[in-house]
Design a protein around this nucleic acid. Sequence first.
RNA 1: GUGACCGUAGCUCAAUGGUAGAGUCCCAGAUUGUGAUUCUGGUUGUUGCGGGUUCGAGCCCCGUCGGUCACCCCA
Length: 428
Amino acid sequence: MSSSAIASLPGFRDLTPRECAVRNYVFAAWRGAAARAGFVEWEGPTLESTDLYRKKSGDEIIGQLFHFTDKGEREVALRPELTPTLARIVAARHRDFKKPLKWFQIGPCFRYEAPQKGRLREFYQWNADILGEASPAADAELIALGIEALRSLGFTSDDFAVRLSDRALWDRFLMTAGIEADRTTAFLQLIDKWEKDPPAVMDAKLQALGTSREAVAAFMVSAREEPGPLGPVIDDLTARGLGGFVRIDPGIVRGLAYYTGTVFEFFSLRAGARAIAGGGRYDHLVSTLSDGAVSMPAAGFGMGDVVLGNLLEETPGPCARLHEALATAAALDVWVVVADEERRADALRLLQDLRGRGLRADLVLAAAKVGRQFQAAEAAGARTAVVVGAEWPVLKVKHLAQREEVTTDRDGVWATLSQWMEIGQPVG
RNA sequence: GUGACCGUAGCUCAAUGGUAGAGUCCCAGAUUGUGAUUCUGGUUGUUGCGGGUUCGAGCCCCGUCGGUCACCCCA
């Protein structure tokens, strides 16, 4: 609080154990969903050559990077996302792997932007990608994975939906409308603001490009009725029973980046509808980054932990599930109470024995009154306690929730605990 | 980068321009071996920082830093 104290940097978080546990819970959901779908985990470096991002997105992106010159005069940048690293690795090493690749990574990313709700300067991103498979089945597989991850956290079709589009839809529209290719980017940026800009403003801007709001609106309606290139993706997801999560929405454009076909966005249906995740097909990126040496179709998506974390706390169902998981994760199986300091050595031996058998066990490190040790056990969420005192080798084992205590010996401790543990073991 | 609002104890917040407080948390105790509640006691502040106005500033003014939200952007 004092001015001389060093505070954390803006947009960077300190994760105390409770927040760390929430993060781990989210990671477990991501990893679990990916593993169940046959995706394997990889990991790349946090720091990359700045050129990796410049090459892909152009110079304007450099302003949003944490970048510097290292001691070897190299221009380097903290990664703002995971996909370029993936493309770089796959371009270099793809012969080592059978296709298609189904890879995922979880890791910190950095963006030098003004922090605000749902957006920080350091955040975790989960990226899942399929490379070497051009079929729409890959797009659908990825969308299904994202849906499963969110469902495993307790979210339902009341909480989120997937908006699906395809760059090809707009290519068709632009061709029909006679708009030159070099204005495509400007046009798509307008579409991105379709819901934000007032109709009159939107119309004026579109007129300047040689079309109109009316024409675009009519096209959007027709695109929703006529899935066109998105038909196979929709059919695939419908066959999986996930059709209810997906809707065609040509308004989804996903920035100006490297997408070449299908694009999609997971967005919250709750107040302040925000994007939870986004992705799409990027068939040319591997080729671009390898200067044409390797060509490989690819698709993927990224999901950040910040918006998702907010949603977890705000949505009742998932929030309850989270708290239940946190309580279970933090709980100890047994607390060893040293009722007589003369017996601390015996207590320590018992403690190590219990840990060696796989139980989560702890004790108060410094001498303390029995009452305080039970308080510590309670605070730590211990389910049982073993009292080691003057009557050694006689021991007392207590089930804290049931307030039930039995007298036994060293062997009896294990028998009693294993019996109680099985009873109290949470299912799933 | 631009704009609006906000900065008081670790946290949540009080305090007409007139001596900075409460709750909570944390720590320690309540007839020497058992948890909740309760009770008692205790620690923590140059009121974000720096100027200015005033007899006197937590309060008013300017600046600065930080936070939040929005814009921009969103890979």
